[in-house]
Amino acid sequence: MKPKLTKRIWFLIILCVLTLPALAQNEINTEFINRMSYVFSPLEKNRVPNGLLLDYAMEFADVKNYNGVLTDSNKVNAGLLKDMYTTIAMSAIHGNAGGLYGPDYMDSIWQLQRQPGSITLSGLYYNYSGLRGDAVNAGLITVSNDQLYDRYVNGVWQNPYQTETVFAMSPPLHAYSGKSFQVMLPSNLWFTNNASSVSTIAVDFNDGTGYRIITMGQAINI
């Protein structure tokens, strides 16, 4: 029986991580990237939906836990939001992934937007892809010499991918001193590869007024 893809890929990734030297601050270790490039190099990368493959990334956050369904275990803060963005950025496996920036970009824009008496939100909403856990056993992909290969049956490409969604939003701070302030979501702090599917963004500030629609770039008095 062939091993399940999930176990095999994670075994490879664990080996990579165990052999890495410590990551220098604000640097991405090229040994991990080189290893992932080797494992995934035979794939027809243009077939990866949205150009984002989570299996290809070093995961700084469990983005699967932030699928837009609110639970007790997926509270978001600024650090976690940046880790999710970094994970998504590292999952870009070909050019169709669009305009993703380095891990410090979100933080630098956030700092520039800070204003007295104002809380500046940032958020992300991405469609990304992942390899199905049963892709090997289902005959959708082939593993050979620690590399992944697309599989065809009678000339028909077998799709090993499933599409997922990550959504998260956070203020840049944990607490604010004062009873009156403004909240704003600037357009350059809203990161997404599916903007056309978002008609409105609304927030319940727990002030008795219920959900209020946020217009990007316009402050709301709270």
Rank of each mutant, 00 (worst) to 15 (best):
M216G: 06
D150M: 05
I119E: 01
I14M: 07
R8F: 11
L53Q: 00
F11C: 07
V198A: 04
G102D: 15
L81F: 13
S187H: 12
L100E: 06
A61C: 09
Y56Q: 00
V153H: 13
V76M: 15
M90H: 03
E164T: 02
G117S: 08
K64F: 11
M184T: 15
L140Y: 03
G51Q: 01
M216K: 15
I93S: 01
E44R: 12
A78H: 13
G130I: 02
F40Q: 04
Q25R: 13
I213M: 09
G133M: 04
S180G: 04
I14V: 12
T192G: 03
R47Q: 13
N67A: 10
T19A: 11
R151G: 03
F205S: 06
L81D: 04
L20R: 01
G208S: 05
N34A: 13
M106A: 11
Y105I: 07
V17K: 09
G178F: 05
Q182D: 15
S129W: 00
I9D: 02
S180A: 11
N159Q: 10
N46G: 14
V198L: 12
Y126S: 00
K4M: 09
N77Y: 10
S177Q: 14
D207G: 11
K2C: 08
L54Q: 06
G139I: 08
P49A: 04
L140Q: 10
C16S: 13
N206R: 12
G99Y: 09
C16F: 06
S199T: 15
Q182G: 14
S197W: 02
S37V: 09
D62V: 06
F191Q: 07
S177V: 12
R35L: 10
E44F: 04
M84S: 03
Y176A: 04
I88C: 03
Y149I: 03
N221H: 13
V156W: 05
V203Q: 00
Y176V: 11
G208Q: 08
D104C: 09
R151M: 11
I213P: 02
N74M: 07
V203P: 02
L173G: 06
T19V: 07
G117L: 06
I222G: 02
F167Y: 12
I220L: 15
L100Q: 07
F191S: 00
P171T: 12
P116H: 03
D146A: 10
L53V: 02
N96H: 13
A175N: 13
L112T: 13
A22H: 09
L81G: 00
Y126H: 08
V166K: 00
F191M: 13
A175Y: 13
I93D: 00
M106R: 04
A202Q: 15
N206K: 14
S197Q: 14
Y56L: 05
T120C: 10
I28G: 04
S118H: 11
D134V: 05
L54P: 01
G51N: 06
L140A: 06
F181K: 05
V17N: 03
M169N: 05
V69I: 15
I141Q: 01
S187Y: 10
V203F: 14
P186D: 03
A168H: 02
